[in-house]
């Protein structure tokens, strides 16, 4: 039965969980909390089954498969975070901040390339290192972003002397600040390592005989967001005074920029940060053309996962 799982299944589950979490702002009920957790858990199971099915079909781990799978792994990690925190703390309004990111990632995954990346699968060891560093770093980015937004909401409440709102209980500024610091300090090195291995991989000639040009706009934008994060990282480590609100704002800007860049580039550009792959694989998009892209990229037929093309129409 789990082989019939579609993207819509867990997208809808996460959307329901988000709606229920939002309801908790007005209605205080343990039933609603558990219903939200239940929907998220159901989505989590479907999500896992979907990733397994994809991995089985491509004979590749999701991280090495395609941008589509990679985004879903990131969303999967975010859901694990949500479930863990929500089960442990019944009053925390964590879902309101994290679930929108999950929904965004799952929705974005629908519009990005589902073709396998030949370069990553060819250099399997390095590819795995590159993709896992990126996904773990990106999970840290998501955590940092969510924590920073929570910090700003809590800070605003305290400055405006407003009461705690039911369903929107947040950790103290001190704790949010500490967790955010760790999110930055852990994710930036991981992303740097991911980026370095990515650059290394791109310098290696790919199976189709073409190499990535480092002057590609997509690569440049990615480098720019990395520089912004690195600046945040260094500032955080060396600055004598790091007011919490400033840290939160800078994190939101740097991490938000990185996350948006990552998603927007993948959705709207030709292959995002792996643009050359898509460029090579442009013939794959054009299945009828019968061009030689099939040597470098293996297209996975939609029907293998029963994803109707009009899911998000």
């Amino acid at each position: 039965m789990l082989n019939n799982v579609t993207l819509l299944c867990f997208f809808a589950s996460y959307l329901c969980a988000l709606a229920l979490e939002t309801t908790r702002l007005w209605v205080k009920s343990g039933v609603i909390r558990w219903a939200a957790i239940g929907f998220a858990a159901a989505g989590f199971v479907a999500h896992m089954a979907y990733l397994f099915a994809r991995a089985g079909a491509t004979d590749l781990p999701p991280l090495l498969s395609s941008t589509h799978d990679w985004l879903l792994v990131l969303a999967f990690l975010a859901v694990v975070m949500y479930l863990f925190v929500s089960v442990l703390d019944r009053s925390l309004g964590f879902g309101l901040f994290l679930l929108p990111v999950v929904v965004l990632l799952v929705a974005a995954s629908r519009f990005v390339d589902q073709a396998t990346n030949a370069r990553l699968s060819a250099e399997r060891g390095w590819g795995m290192l590159h993709a896992s560093m990126w996904v773990l770093g990106a999970a840290g980015v998501v955590a940092g972003l969510v924590l920073s937004v929570m910090y700003l909401v809590q800070h605003r409440r305290l400055r405006q002397k407003r009461l705690l709102q039911d369903g929107l209980e947040l950790p103290s500024l001190e704790r949010l600040s500490r967790l955010n610091w760790w999110a930055i300090v852990i994710s930036v090195p991981l992303l740097t390592l991911g980026m370095a291995t990515g650059v290394g991989l791109s310098l290696v000639e790919d199976p189709a005989g073409e190499t990535v040009r480092l002057t590609e706009p997509n690569i440049l934008i990615s480098v720019l967001s990395w520089v912004a994060m690195m600046a945040l990282f260094v500032w955080l480590l060396v600055a004598r005074r790091t007011p919490g609100k400033l840290v939160a704002w800078r994190t939101v800007w740097a991490f938000g920029f990185l996350l948006l860049t990552l998603i927007v580039l993948e959705v709207f550009s030709q292959g995002g940060v792996h643009g050359v792959t898509r460029r090579q694989g442009s013939g794959i998009r054009d299945q009828g053309s019968g061009k030689s892209g099939q040597d470098s990229v293996h297209r996975i037929p939609h029907s293998a996962f029963r994803i109707p093309p009009s899911y998000f129409a």
């Binding site: 809590q154 103290s172 001190e174 704790r175």
Partner: peptide, 21 residues
């Protein structure tokens, strides 16, 4: 529900939202 003494509101509603401990 809800704290109703000055001290408890100060510490419980605001102080604990600023400091963890």
């Amino acid at each position: 529900e809800g704290r109703i003494s000055i001290a408890s509101v100060a510490v419980g509603e605001f102080g604990r939202s600023i400091f963890d401990r």
